[in-house]
Design a protein around this nucleic acid. Structure first.
Length: 570
RNA sequence: UGCGGUGUGGCCGAAUGGGUAAAGGCAUUUGGCUCUGAACCAAAAGAAUGCAGGUUCGAAUCCUGCCACUGUAGCCA
């Protein structure tokens, strides 16, 4: 498997098996497909990919990779009224970014329109399909209900010749949309509604993003999908649970057409994640109604949103492996996603210092006008990451939350009379506080111990707290965007009593900090490169960033056990 | 209320034609370590597997009957 980012590091995981992989393994043992494994990822190009699709991508490409097989990328473009080239592009970008490669196996259902048409003619000739003139409304009425059988269409017994003629004229564009459809002749009394003479072709006078105006009849999903799978000689056609009831139809079409490749459809449960939504309709609504800034808003669970947020492909892949594959519908806690993210970022993110809510500290005994460069390791877990120089001077910024005039028990950051370590620098002791008339703290005065340069003390005196800091005169201004879960409720889809899911939108999902100070090495931060802002979390440069005004996204915060005990105390 | 599917700790999920204390991960709690209250290390707590019967020396696995949840009545996919 190729990874697009060379610096990317993979999290160690033992890939677990699941019921689908077992089926594939058994088929390999029984030589059912002569040792071949061919899967496919078949998105409809009518929207952006989200992390639910990533589960399917990892599954399909994963199974192919593990078995020296192939996985096709096939655009299921049978409905020209909804599909666009823009989506085709974004889907390819996202699949590649996730680290998967379809090589030469890029297909479109629209490539098969001619073949599909010929198969339809064959079905008509064998009296297995007929042209129906019922209106959409009538078709619905004839179909029956969940508990009542349907009844035969009055057009069901047209002659083969008449059907052939009508179908030909449908194709020639002689009829308006809705006037006729081609239906499979199965059984209007079947307990499975999908088998009640399903429509397999409809008239659509829309321009197709690839075939233009060549066609005005388009195959329906059930008809096109199984045949596309068969044409491509897919061995295992993996889809989600809602298609379970369609499997008899999938098999019926392939059986009746006596094709020589008959893939096996296998269904699994789609992914749900807490505190977000993963339905195309809802995601589209959030975008269209400006609840978010776009498909790639860093709060969105879309692949493009996650990418902009700073997620790594490896973290998403690991997540998809860990959630497993099963048939029961479930909701995975978003904490699992975030855990894997931190785990991966911890390996590859370089550490830097940034102060989000600055508080000025003056080091009284540090010579005025002097400055020095201190060495800082980029990643304590990875010696290859090297070191960098960080400028230090008499005035620095620390985090407001790192100073408390009257500290509670267990607080081991800075407070009057207390000594703390400045990361990579010196030990400092707070000697006084300067406030304005209304009592707000303007600056904190400290003294430093020159013997502790680099953050070490020869006498091994105990210093419990270590703070991050930035030299005031070297600091770069930055905007930092902090994100929280998009929804406050674990399951926003639980819309009981008519409550709309948007009711649960988190008003604090985006918090913008405008007066952040970051260390100068960040001046040349490349887009998307992961950083750990020491003691705070993982961040990356956002595409809104400018040279004069850097903009960073918080990908995910570090775990914060102090915040936890603080909360408990309240 | 047809047909299909699914029920295993708070959340995912193993246990693949019955066999010792029902894996593992996340979350939670505790302790250790540490120049990040991070990471890391160690440990703890937490389920008698939807319910009720039955078969068996022995059942999450087999049988019977219930219950709950879910999908399905597009000329969407």
């Amino acid at each position: 498997m190729e990874t697009p980012n060379k610096s990317e590091k993979e999290t160690e995981t033992t890939s677990a098996s699941d019921f689908i992989r077992e089926i594939v393994a058994q088929d390999l043992v029984s030589n059912k497909h002569k040792g071949r494994v061919a899967t496919r990822f078949p998105p409809e190009p009518n929207g952006y990919l989200h992390i639910g699709h990533a589960k399917s991508i990892c599954l399909n490409f994963g199974i192919a990779n593990e078995n020296s097989g192939v996985c096709h990328l096939r655009f299921d473009d049978t409905n020209p009224s909804k599909e666009e080239t823009e989506y085709v592009e974004s889907i390819m970008t996202d699949v590649k970014w996730l680290g998967f490669n379809w090589n030469e196996h890029l297909y479109y259902a629209s490539d098969y329109f001619q073949k599909l048409y010929q198969y339809a003619v064959q079905m008509i000739k064998e009296s297995k399909a007929y042209v129906c003139g019922l209106s959409p409304q009538e078709t619905r009425e004839y179909r029956g209900t969940l508990t009542e059988p349907g009844k035969n269409s009055p057009y069901r017994d047209r002659s083969v010749e008449e059907n052939l003629d009508l179908f030909e004229r449908m194709k020639a564009g002689e009829f308006e949309e809705g006037k006729y459809v081609l239906r499979a002749k199965i059984d209007m009394t079947s307990p499975n509604l999908n088998m009640r003479d399903p429509v397999i072709y409809r008239i659509l006078k829309a321009s197709h993003h690839r075939t233009g105006d060549k066609w005005c009849i388009y195959p329906m999903y059930d008809y096109a999908h199984c045949l596309s799978d068969s044409i491509e000689r897919i061995t295992h056609s993996i889809c989600t649970l809602e298609f379970e009831d369609h499997r008899p139809l999938y098999d019926w079409i392939l059986d009746e057409l006596r094709v020589d490749a008959h893939p096996q459809q296998i269904e699994f449960a789609r992914l749900n994640i807490s505190n977000t939504v993963l339905s195309k309709r809802k995601l589209l609504e959030l975008v269209k109604q400006n609840y978010v800034s776009g498909w790639d808003d860093p709060r969105m669970p879309t692949i493009s949103g996650l990418r902009r947020r700073g997620y790594t492909p490896a973290a998403i892949r690991t997540f998809c492996e860990r959630i497993g594959v099963a048939k029961r519908e479930s909701m995975v806690e978003i904490a699992l996603l975030e855990h894997g993210l931190r785990e991966n970022l911890n390996l590859c993110a370089e550490r830097v210092m940034a102060v989000l809510n600055p508080l000025k500290v003056v080091i009284d005994n540090y010579p005025e006008g002097t400055e020095e460069e201190l060495e800082a390791v980029n990643n304590p877990g990875d010696t290859n990451a090297g070191t960098r120089k960080v400028p230090f001077s008499r005035e620095i910024y620390i985090e407001q939350s790192d100073f408390l005039e009257t500290p509670p028990k267990g607080f081991f950051r800075l407070s009057p009379g207390k000594e703390v370590r400045l990361k990579h620098a010196y030990y400092i002791t707070c000697v006084s506080v300067v406030k304005n008339e209304s009592g707000e703290i303007l600056e904190v005065h400290c003294t430093y111990d020159p013997e502790t340069r680099g953050g070490w003390s020869k006498d091994e005196r105990m210093v419990k707290g270590t703070l991050h800091w930035v030299s005031t005169k070297h600091a770069l201004d930055a905007e930092v965007r902090l994100y929280e879960h998009l929804f406050t409720k674990a399951n926003p889809n639980d819309e009981k009593d008519g409550v709309d899911y948007k009711t649960y939108l988190n008003p604090n999902s985006l918090q913008v900090l405008n007066s952040c100070k970051v260390e100068p090495s960040l001046a040349n931060a490349p887009l998307g490169k992961p950083y750990q802002f020491l003691r705070q979390g993982y961040f990356c440069l956002d595409l809104d960033s400018q040279t004069e005004k850097l903009v960073f996204n918080r990908t995910v915060g570090l775990k914060d056990s102090w915040a936890k005990t603080e909360k408990k105390g309240k």
